Computed example of a mutant assay.
Amino acid sequence: MPTLPRIDSFADELTAIRRDLHAHPEIGFEEKRTSGIVAEKLAGWGIEVHRGIGGTGVVGVLKGKGGGSKRIGLRADMDALPMEENTNLPWRSTVPGRFHGCGHDGHTTILLGAARYLAETKDFDGTVHFIFQPAEEGLGGARAMLKDGLFEKFPCDEVYGLHNAPDLEHGVVAISPGPAMAGADFFDITITGFGAHGAMPKRSRDPVVIAMNLGQALQSIVSRNVTPTEAAVLSITQIHAGSAYNVIPNEAKLAGTVRMFDAGVRKMIQDRMRKICAGIAQAFEVEVKCEIRDIFSVLDNTEEHSKVIAEVARGVVEPKDVIVRKTPKMGSEDFADMLMRVPGAYFWLGHDGSVPVHNPGFVLDDKILPVGASMFARIVETRLPLGA
Rank of each mutant, 00 (worst) to 15 (best):
G256M: 02
T257K: 00
T257H: 01
R259F: 01
R259V: 05
M260S: 10
M260A: 05
F261A: 02
F261S: 05
A263C: 05
V265L: 07
V265Q: 09
V265W: 08
K267P: 06
M268D: 04
Q270E: 15
D271L: 01
R272C: 03
M273L: 03
C277T: 12
C277L: 06
A278H: 06
A278I: 08
G279N: 09
G279S: 05
A281G: 06
Q282C: 11
F284Y: 12
E285V: 07
E287D: 11
V288I: 15
R293C: 03
I295G: 00
I295K: 05
F296A: 02
V298F: 01
V298D: 01
L299A: 04
D300F: 05
N301E: 01
E303P: 00
E303H: 04
H305M: 08
S306K: 08
K307R: 07
V308T: 15
A310V: 12
V312L: 04
V312T: 10
A313P: 12
D321L: 13
D321P: 00
V322Y: 13
V322F: 14
I323R: 11
P328K: 06
M330W: 10
M330G: 08
G331S: 14
E333F: 11
F335M: 12
A336H: 14
A336K: 14
L339E: 06
R341H: 14
P343I: 10
G344Q: 05
